[in-house]
Amino acid sequence: MMGPGTTWYIAVAAVLFGIGTTGVILRRSPLIVLLSLEIMLNASNLALVGFSRQFASVDGQIFAICVMAVAAAEVVVGLGLIVAFTRRKMPLDVDTLTELRG
């Protein structure tokens, strides 16, 4: 087998996951939060694929494919909500959603 070992894959996946986490927590535009969520899911996919090669078991790849579909589903609902927000002229900012407050 050639190329970097699994450890490298997982390291990149962990860094990506961290980036995605930071984005979700930090950004206020729901659009970018959704994009950051995609990064988190993709980081998980990378880990799954890396481990899948590690064990020579296709389970991880299958998992990754299912995750892609799920990610698409989340995006559809998220974008639907964002469109509904815009239609009602509500501010697109997760922090200024003031109607509900802790």
């Binding site: 609902v77 927000f85 509500m90 959603l97 509900l100």
Partner: peptide
Amino acid sequence: LEAGLKYLIVGSFGSAV
């Protein structure tokens, strides 16, 4: 709507974790 968006974001975050 706000609750839905909030739930989607936090819930998906939880799922990603």
